[in-house]
Design a binder for these strands. Sequence first.
DNA 1: ATTCCACAGGAAACAGTGGTCC
DNA 2: GGACCACTGTTTCCTGTGGAAT
Length: 403
Amino acid sequence: MTEDLVDKLLNDAAIGKSLFKDRKIVNLGHKPDQILYRDNELATITQILIPITKQSKPSNLLIYGKPGTGKTLVTDHILKKIEKNIIKNQQNYKVKLVFLNAKNETTLYGLLVRLGNELDQENELPKTGLSISQIFTKIIDTITSKSLNVIFIIDEIDYLAKLVQKTGKDILYNLTRANERLDGKGSLTLIGISNDLTFKENLDPRVISSLGEEEIIFSNYSTEQLRNILEDRIKLAFNPQSVEESALNLCAAMAGREHGDARRAIDLLRVAGELAERQQSEKVTEEHVREASQKIEENKEATVLKSYPLHEKLLILAVMKASGASTGEIYSIYKELCKIVRQKELTQRRTTQMLSEIELSGIITGRLVHQGIHGRTKKYKLTISPEMVKNSFKDDLTLEDII
DNA sequence: ATTCCACAGGAAACAGTGGTCC
DNA sequence: GGACCACTGTTTCCTGTGGAAT
């Protein structure tokens, strides 16, 4: 009996036909090789890196571009080709690619340890306990003893530069000058990838001169280019005629408005396709694209809200309960909330810092107000609906009593 | 012209964690 | 087992701020 029901449901589902031919093509992170639209950049970077195929050290390289301009994808693509080429033609010449995203590491130490572990997978470096210079020495030793030619690619290197600035430890300087310590046994080439054109301003001038030997900029995709990219993906991912022309144009235009982000364009297309499919629509329409855009935005907010630690959540609730209030008022509400959930309250200094951090995410906005003799304060407001906050926090048992 | 409010936000110190090395 | 290291999250202390009130 139950079996019959399952069969029936499956049959019914099969009637509502899928719009997708190959769904993974529009997943983020899926990278069809042939669709780069970056011929100029491809050629330039390859030229810069060619020396390493001739067994000499290429220049260090900095690559800039806004998110979703394909800089990481293109770099990765070229380097893997070079590596393959070398492995095929020059067996005794050892090249090692290490690709790291600085954002995945919260500390300089962690970043160096990851690099070290990639170079020497048998002897894992300790996650803590050693000094940074000891780790650095171990890395240099590994490179010289194995005569490795290392190409170290750091994605989001601006983030690393901030860490360097904060701690005062100049890892970047040491990395760019590592070749002087290598004595010709092996080499280290640094490739930095960054979203931020201005990050160099905070660096030591000596680092700038050696790291920025070569620079290349990935310009934003134009709406027309985005349209081409989407068209290619649609051909591969969707059944014929299942995406309306106008929907495609809107997708490209929306992503084009946000500094030509191809990743966002593709994501938008995927979500629109899924929405259309769920509504059993024959085609993806403009309306689906608009809906998708809104949904992506909401998901982003919900994820951010859920990921906050308890005291940040309490502060957001305090802002919600007193929209437009000053930090002083917010702090007293926060203290009351702490009492209800039986948590020890943090100091006002700490909470103002937290409020600034939350403000950066865009969940709340603050406005500095001078009130004459009533002093200076910052007034905070929620930028999202209270329902959104309540929905996102409702799974948190500690907050049960105050929502 | 001076005072004074109610904070903002920088700097430094501290506690605690989780580790290495000798 | 004690000296040392990196790091996070926090507290403590402090200086600076613009305009209403005096």
